[in-house]
């Protein structure tokens, strides 16, 4: 046990937690924006799978991570348009359409991967800051700083994007007209409408942003792991949706939830590697992130009310 509580191991665990948390964070931030506008999306996992494959395949074909992330983003955007049309304009039931998106993404990404790629082949992972082309040199000395380097500067660019999005989303939701509109149409679309806010357009763009972030999450996942295979996400998208509730629709608490989940997972893997948790209890250890997340919420739960119009389609009189 004592060997775990050394600075270097703790930092490595934290770095591992960050890697695990980034896809959750990106996807959950996107879902937060969508839900704030009143639209639940259970299809995050499906969007992530499609983007994860798209990004991976792009890197195989072109070797460019930038293009890969771009393609992942575009796939997210496209699925956002689909989902927005289906739920906002066609008023489809949100729970079931999300599951439709999930099933489509699960099946189609698998089909494409079998037909276009075949056997799993690893690709180059997203580079850390110091290994970035052109600007990498700037970060090299930073990454070499003992402890701090690994803690703060050893990650890939998408990690910083994900965490930078937390204050950006908070700012957007609270300080920009668009953000305030999102909250307004999520709380009381009728009132917002009477004030001249287009409910449909606001929700449309909120969903677009949300799905684009899910797309980024998928691309980050496959490029960070350097591989794609059937059902790569393993339900990650559903956990991301759950984390929105953990974070009570606030970006910083969503981040806290993603980090908690990542940290518990990273810690249990560290403890298993050090035989602090014996192999006979490996499955019990695998439950801990889920259990602790529930427990944490039971202990912390405030009576936070969600967006009042969540899952309700809007029709103007």
């Amino acid at each position: 046990m004592s060997e775990f509580f050394t600075l270097s191991v703790l930092i490595a665990t934290f770095a591992s937690a960050v890697r695990l948390a980034v896809p959750y964070l990106l996807a959950a931030l996107g879902e937060t924006i969508g839900q704030r506008s009143g639209v639940l999306n259970l299809g995050v996992d499906g969007v992530m799978l499609l983007s994860a494959f798209g990004a991976y395949y792009t890197v195989i074909e072109t070797g460019s991570h930038l293009l890969g992330v771009g393609v992942g983003l575009l796939i997210g955007l496209f699925m956002g348009v689909v989902y927005a049309v289906v739920t906002v304009h066609l008023h489809a039931k949100q729970g079931i359409s999300g599951i439709g998106i999930f099933l489509f993404g699960l099946g189609f990404s698998d089909l494409l991967s079998q037909e276009l790629v075949g056997a799993i082949q690893p690709i180059k992972k997203l580079p850390s800051l110091a290994k970035l082309p052109f600007v990498g040199g700037i970060f090299e000395p930073l990454e070499d700083i003992k402890y701090i380097g690994e803690l703060l500067f050893s990650h890939n660019l998408m990690t910083y994007v994900a965490f930078a999005l937390v204050p950006i989303v908070t700012w957007m939701m609270n300080r920009t007209t668009f953000g305030l509109n999102i909250k307004a149409v999520g709380e009381n679309p009728q009132a917002a409408d009477s004030l001249g806010v287009s409910v449909e357009r606001t929700r449309f763009f909120a969903i677009l942003i949300g799905n684009t972030l899910a797309g980024l999450a998928g691309a980050t996942l496959s490029l960070q792991l350097g591989v794609f295979q059937q059902n790569l996400t393993n339900g990650l998208g559903f956990i991301a949706v759950a984390l929105v509730y953990f974070g009570a629709w606030r970006a910083k608490w969503v981040m806290a939830g993603a980090m908690l989940y990542g940290l518990v997972t990273a810690t249990r893997l560290q403890w298993q590697a050090r035989d602090i948790i014996p192999n006979s209890a490996s499955d019990l250890a695998a439950m801990t992130p889920a259990l602790i997340t529930i427990l944490a919420l039971v202990l912390l739960a405030k009576r936070v009310r969600g967006p009042a119009a969540l899952t309700k389609p809007f029709t103007r009189h």
Binding site: N234, A266, L269, Q270, A273, R274, A285
Partner: peptide
């Protein structure tokens, strides 16, 4: 040192399990 991740298919877990073993 043996780590069982609890999943046959979770690549992210296998990756971080290996990272933990590296430390």
């Amino acid at each position: 040192a043996v780590t069982y991740t609890g999943s046959f298919s979770d690549v992210a877990l296998a990756t971080e399990a290996a990272e933990a073993l590296v430390t």
